[in-house]
């Protein structure tokens, strides 16, 4: 069995199984926790309005802009680059189509009635390269900033490494770097994404699935208490 065969077969199956297992464990464990009853009189009964916090917290606040601008800009850059490369590159789309077909017996168009749009390879390459650059910048910032360095642990650095790896290996595969055979580069790229999947639920990367729910819940509590958002 070649590296690519392993990555596309058993490697994929086991990494997705671990990802699904860990993700459901964490999410079910969190969402079924008991909320402490609040017996006080609500200042604002329409607490659902607190869901605004999801959007408000996603935008920089003027008063803190000086200190947060770098992180906000770089954070948005690499997140958007990563997500666009992940969801709008044709080979990735075909991978997700195989997931749809495997789970639901139909493709994206069969479910939503239109084709999943894709971007030209040049655009994906550019965005991936920008993402890698932004990730390098945030790492340097993390290491050189004394406060950030103090609050960083193994999880932060290892998650960074596993996040940058699929982008970097994808770019190397596209460029056929170093005269290495394409299938070896492609196998390495897929494996790097699989290692990311395995690490994902058990690390800070789980924030991708909890961040908006957490902001929403916090916003609703704030709203009920009448706090200014």
């Amino acid at each position: 069995m070649t590296l690519l065969d392993f990555a596309r077969g058993p490697g994929l199956q086991w990494s997705v199984a671990i990802f699904v297992f860990g993700l459901l464990w964490r999410l079910v464990g969190i969402f079924f926790l008991r909320t402490k009853p609040d017996l006080s009189e609500p200042r604002n009964p329409a607490k659902w309005k607190g869901l605004r916090l999801i959007a408000l917290r996603s935008w920089p606040r003027k008063e803190f802009l000086e200190g947060t601008a770098f992180g906000e800009v770089m954070g948005y850059t690499f997140h958007l680059g990563f997500l666009v490369a992940l969801f709008f590159y044709v080979p990735h789309l075909l991978f997700f189509e195989s997931v749809f077909e495997g789970l639901l017996g139909t493709d994206f168009e069969g479910i939503f009635g239109f084709r999943w749009p894709v971007l030209p390879t040049a655009a994906i390459t550019f965005l991936s390269a920008v993402s890698v650059a932004a990730l390098v910048a945030v790492l340097i910032h993390r290491i050189t900033n004394p406060v950030k360095r103090l609050i960083s642990n193994f999880d932060d650095y290892f998650s960074w490494l596993l996040t940058v790896a699929p982008l970097a290996t994808g770019l190397l595969a596209y460029a056929h770097a170093g005269g290495i055979r394409y299938e070896t580069l492609l196998g390495t790229h897929i494996l790097s994404a699989e290692v990311l999947l395995v690490w994902f639920p058990f690390s800070k990367l789980i924030h991708a699935f909890t961040i908006f729910a957490a902001r929403g819940a916090t916003g609703m509590i704030f709203e009920r208490k009448g706090a200014s958002l």
């Binding site: 199956q13 199984a17 699904v20 297992f21 860990g22 079924f32 075909l94 991978f95």
Partner: peptide
């Protein structure tokens, strides 16, 4: 780039185990 998913039993079992452990 389509994955070889096999029978999918491993993933289904993992999902079940995750829900039980989470609960």
């Amino acid at each position: 780039s389509a994955g070889d998913w096999g029978s999918g039993r491993t993933i289904a079992a993992a999902a079940g185990a995750g829900v039980v452990l989470g609960a």
